[in-house]
Computed example of a mutant assay.
Amino acid sequence: MAQRFEQDRPRLRAVAYRILGSLAEADDALQDAWLRADRADTFEVDNLSGWLTTVVARVCLNMLRTRDTRREEPLDDGTGRGPAATAHSVTGVGAPPADPAEEVQLADEVGFALLIVLDSLGPAERLAFVLHDMFDVPFGDIAAMLDKTPAAIRQLASRARRRVRGVPAPDADLPRRRRAVDAYLAATRGGDFDALVSLLHPDVVLRADAAVVPTPEPIAVTGVEQVARGAMASMARARLTGVVLVDGRVGLAMAENGRLRVVLRFTFADDGLITGIDVIAEPDRLGELRISGIGA
């Protein structure tokens, strides 16, 4: 069992990471799964790799179902006191804290936007989509995990697939606005102040709720240079940000430790310049948003 678990560890870790969206939690899930596997009687198990995948998936499902109680953690303020600094304090014995650089690399490989949309799905939808669409686990096997029929799992996966892939928005300017938002994200990640300024309307206004900074009250910033400087201050967050549809309109969303943390909604002038940026981080407001992928 130990030999097979180590042989399958890369795949099992990939499964756990895509279900949970957090490298630290994925490693915790593998620790828990190993303890369960080591104690189990597997004499009659014909497919150990498939059985281990089921064990890991069940552990991840339990973690997803208990996750809501931790959704209102404040954003990491850069001082090391936020959730990014504490998320690894519960890692199991022998599981070192996840490397932030590895976390970013893995998120980039999977796709920031995909992880963000997955976070907006319910546990059953997320499990069905990840296991079937990403790892070819049969619907029947997933049905046994969730105590549902294979037909019900097929519907869950289909619904999740529509959210992940997105649907064409009725906005005819979507392609142009997506290019603008892509350029905004690239400029913010790269610290290119001049490129960012070129995307903003002279009268641009940025509004941020009280949970963004945080501040006692929402804030508003006006003017190209002031807004651009504010965006430059969020370079670290931009590394974990992806382009998504927010209520059917192109926007940005940032996930930290597998949780949706910040959403940016944009408004545009007729010439395509950005006239307004609404930065949302309050949990109640985030919960009201519909996040989906952008269809081709």
Rank of each mutant, 00 (worst) to 15 (best):
G248W: 00
R249W: 06
A208R: 12
R207S: 10
R261A: 08
H201W: 01
L196T: 03
G191E: 04
G258Q: 05
P218G: 13
R207N: 09
A236C: 05
D247I: 11
V262D: 04
G191Q: 02
G258E: 04
D203K: 07
R249F: 15
L252Y: 02
N257F: 08
G248Q: 06
R249M: 15
L196F: 05
A228M: 08
P216T: 10
I219C: 06
T215L: 15
P214E: 06
A211W: 11
G242P: 02
D203A: 07
M254T: 13
V205Y: 01
A195H: 08
V246S: 00
P214Y: 02
A228F: 03
P214S: 03
A228E: 07
L264F: 12
A231R: 14
M235C: 13
A253M: 05
R207E: 13
A195S: 10
V197H: 06
A255K: 08
D192G: 01
F193I: 06
V243D: 00
A208N: 05
L200G: 01
E256W: 12
G190P: 04
A195D: 09
A220Y: 04
V227Q: 03
E225K: 15
V263S: 04
V197S: 08
G191R: 03
R259K: 09
G248K: 04
A233S: 14
V213S: 14
V243S: 09
V250Q: 00
G223M: 04
G191V: 06
P218F: 11
L196R: 09
V227R: 00
L240A: 13
H201V: 02
V262F: 04
G190E: 01
V246Q: 01
E217P: 05
H201C: 05
V246N: 02
G191H: 01
I219F: 05
Q226F: 05
A210S: 14
E256F: 14
F193S: 02
R237G: 15
L264M: 07
E225N: 14
L252R: 06
R249K: 14
G230H: 10
A253T: 04
R189I: 01
R261V: 03
L200S: 07
R229M: 07
G190Q: 06
L260I: 03
R259A: 11
D209W: 01
L199A: 06
N257M: 09
V250K: 00
D194E: 13
Q226K: 14
E225H: 15
Q226Y: 08
V213Q: 10
V224C: 12
D247M: 04
L252S: 07
R237S: 14
A255L: 10
V221K: 02
V246D: 00
R207C: 06
V197D: 03
A211L: 13
L264S: 06
T241Y: 08
M235H: 13
V221S: 00
T215N: 11
V205E: 07
T222K: 13
V212E: 08
L200V: 08
G248D: 00
A231V: 07
F193C: 03
A208L: 07
A231G: 12
G242D: 02
V246A: 02
P216C: 03
L260A: 00
L260S: 04
D203S: 08
T241R: 12
T222Q: 13
L199T: 02
D194Y: 02
R189M: 02
M232P: 02
A233D: 12
M235T: 14
E256M: 14
V197N: 05
A210G: 10
E256H: 13
